[in-house]
Design a protein around this nucleic acid. Sequence first.
DNA 1: CTGGTTATCAACAAAACTGTTAATAAGACT
DNA 2: AGTCTTATTAACAGTTTTGTTGATAACCAG
Lengths: 212, 212
Amino acid sequence: MTVTPKQALTKRVRRSVVEARALILSAAQTRLADVGPEGLQIKEIAAIAGVTHSTILHHFGSAEGLRTALAERMVEKLLGDILAVMDQREKMDPSDNTILFRVFEVLSDDGNARLLAWSMLKGTNLEQGRDTLEGLFDQLLVGVVDAVKTSAGDMIVNDSVAERQARFIIYLVAATAVGDGVAGSYLAKFVGLEGEDATSGFRDWFAGRLFS
Amino acid sequence: MTVTPKQALTKRVRRSVVEARALILSAAQTRLADVGPEGLQIKEIAAIAGVTHSTILHHFGSAEGLRTALAERMVEKLLGDILAVMDQREKMDPSDNTILFRVFEVLSDDGNARLLAWSMLKGTNLEQGRDTLEGLFDQLLVGVVDAVKTSAGDMIVNDSVAERQARFIIYLVAATAVGDGVAGSYLAKFVGLEGEDATSGFRDWFAGRLFS
DNA sequence: CTGGTTATCAACAAAACTGTTAATAAGACT
DNA sequence: AGTCTTATTAACAGTTTTGTTGATAACCAG
């Protein structure tokens, strides 16, 4: 017995593979931002993207495949953002620490902070881009060590001491940025920071005393 | 037609409502810690708790009800931890800033950092305990303002300036703690902090320069 | 001991989510 | 035009998760 004939309800849109994947991943990211990890289900995502869930399975193999692809894309974006910042660094004074605060902004960016929080919860390994990131931090370290020495002024500073201090400073900036991105909106309220003080005011104050 | 008779396979354990709820919530928390938010399904949780999933539904109404109760319990624990720290504060020198680092430890605690990350992602409102928390922070503020004035030494410091700076310091400690708890294990590797430097070494260094 | 309350369970039912298959149509290339 | 590839879809199927119902047994009050 033959199946009842199927008829198109709307005109099909045929995208390229990369376009379709990008469209779907964007929809998934929207869901992640709007309703959290529980919202990462292919039917809902498909509805947002304007496709059927079958299409998602076609492009990503499985629901978990989509989630993995999303995590990878977000990591790539994070790396890309940091890379872009590092590129600009070469045009600047090596001891200029504003580079640190570009990194701060990237890490505290809402989407990136979400990625880190999500990755931590789901146990995703961020090892994929680790070599790249370590290289970046090494590069960053040189400039920060310079800044430490400069700020030390006349005082003679042992190289290894300066480097240790530089690592602490970088870690401090990074951890603060992540905390700011993850919980900043809550914390600011509790602490009583309002208006500019909750954002640029804090960053400026932070920057001002980093090398003091 | 009558249903086939049911026979008890094992001896039933009849707990009190509070005991049962506590047992189930603990199992849920274990799941959350072990496998993340995806692990919060009542069947798995029931298995760990040693009950059937029907029991969970009986006590929490729905699966989502359980998750909400879990979030609330964890928030209460967080508040309780901070409260305990604040209680000890009254026995200490008001300008002693080690109190800040008790708070640091509470916030950077793995479980609490998970809670914050999870809450942020699922959009849980932490508003419930907000009044309590704001009171705590106000209390904390007094001590930090003292410390700021003390560290300023001879220099005359405007009260409002000192308070603003104190808020910044508290926010810095809190944000750093959260970032440390959420992503510290990753960040330390990237930055190249190893051994003690990644934990107590960093905290000591941080504490030493907070009021410098 | 007796009866009432209810925490607990087993079995069933429903819903949600994921995955499979075959058909269709949009585009590319001849 | 015709042909081929394949992105897309509808319908179906399987699996997982959640929810419902009625019976049972543990405990407590009398």
